[in-house]
Design a protein around this nucleic acid. Structure first.
Lengths: 233, 233
DNA sequence: GTGACATAAAAGTCATACTTTTCGGTGCCG
DNA sequence: CGGCACCGAAAAGTATGACTTTTATGTCAC
């Protein structure tokens, strides 16, 4: 499950990142590179590179003569897919999932509207295909297969919006969907209403009906939000 | 203007990042760490750390026996404020500014609506204060002072939404506003209508009128978008 | 108490040596 | 002629130790 031994750097980064986002080191606490090097039994070189990356995520701040201090949560770079994954694996998953879903509910409808006017025929085809894939896998506990189509569907919508910022949220959405499937924040089978809505969105986009695509996507989003209320208190 | 000599790492990172986002090295081209070390006259250590950070932004990918290859634009981590700043300083600023503004137009109205129900009295106060500050500095070419209030205003709204993901967009919005001011993608004085709208948003939030706050913010956003149409073809 | 100064702790930088992965070619065999 | 296995070298990855720079903090004189 977790990334495995494809480089010391990756391993240490993942471990430390997970620990940090899990709140194992409260904000303000300081780490020292030598100490970390010892703990992980790697050279300072590796630790320094990891710290630099962590620093670029605003998880920590490294200052001379003081060490690597953990930053307050409010400063994390929460749009970095890795940070999302780490936090989704941690303890405050519910809150995390909620704020991400609220973001989706703001962005995806607009993106769907834009997609209706910008999608290429190829993208329309893909969209329909993934929606049908969702239908096909929506029963009988094929959650993993369903997830693949679900992710692909939303990715296509975001890409088809023609807006780069929306497109790049594909990874974020993917993490959210994967997270809620893998952490049992979901019913046994997907909500049939949601599945239908996806098919209809594909339809609306194909027919260039921006308003309808937007509205339908809004319904998907509010549905997801409602589902969260039930499953993640 | 550009970050200056506060560490070799920072300097090299900024320079390389700027060059990359400017498209100086087309996607697919490869850099070698030794070469970079020579070019910048720094040790491999520094270059490696820079590359790791660049890699964490998905600007490049480092592979053994092949080198550091530049990734296609579609994979950049465009939510990293540094990437935004670099790109805003580069050549395709118009397109960049547009996609960011579209994002804002999707997110900020929703955030404002949430802010109306979640804002603390203190935040309401700050909001009014910043709005008034905008009014006070909206005439006579005080663009810099105006910018400060503008940024602060939007930051408070995003924070007051109570949603972490929205809150973290504060930096992004700040980069956008700063970018469009500093790169002359703006009229001499801010649009008076926009200034008024900000005051009204503060009002709406203070009066807990979510729908109105959302609608007014939507108007600000569409106004900004229209302004872009005029100034950045 | 306040300010200048010395001290040392920690990150930052550098040079170098060594390890590991993997691309690309070479040649053998089918 | 084509495919497969093997080999070598190129580049990143890792480790280590020495040295530099910044800076928090304690000390001492005033």
């Amino acid at each position: 499950m977790t990334t495995q031994a494809q480089g010391l750097h990756t391993h240490v980064l993942d471990t430390l990142g997970l620990a940090l986002t899990a709140g194992e080191y409260p904000p303000g606490s300081v780490l020292r590179t030598d100490e970390l090097a010892q703990r992980f039994e790697v050279s300072r070189t590796v630790i320094r590179e990891v710290v630099r990356v962590l620093e670029s995520m605003h998880l920590v701040e490294s200052r001379r003569r003081v060490g690597v201090t953990v930053r307050p949560t409010a400063q994390w770079n929460v749009y970095d897919p890795r940070v999302i994954r780490w936090r989704l694996a941690g303890s405050d998953r519910p809150r995390q999932l909620r704020s991400l879903t609220v973001l989706r509910s703001a962005v995806e409808p607009v993106a769907a509207g834009l997609a209706a006017t910008h999608a290429t025929p190829e993208q329309c085809r893909e969209l329909t295909e993934e929606a049908l894939g969702m239908v096909a896998t929506s029963r009988g506990g094929q959650l993993e297969a369903y997830l693949v189509h679900d992710i692909a569907f939303h990715r296509v919508v975001l890409n088809a919006s023609g807006n780069e910022m929306f497109a790049r949220l594909g990874d974020v959405v993917a993490e959210v969907l994967a997270g809620r499937t893998h952490h049992q924040v979901m019913f046994e089978d997907p909500d049939p209403a949601a599945v239908t809505l996806h098919v209809q969105v594909a339809e609306a986009v194909r027919e260039r009906d921006a308003a309808r695509a937007e509205e339908l996507t809004r319904e998907i989003a509010t549905g997801a939000l409602r589902e969260l209320d039930v499953l993640a208190p």
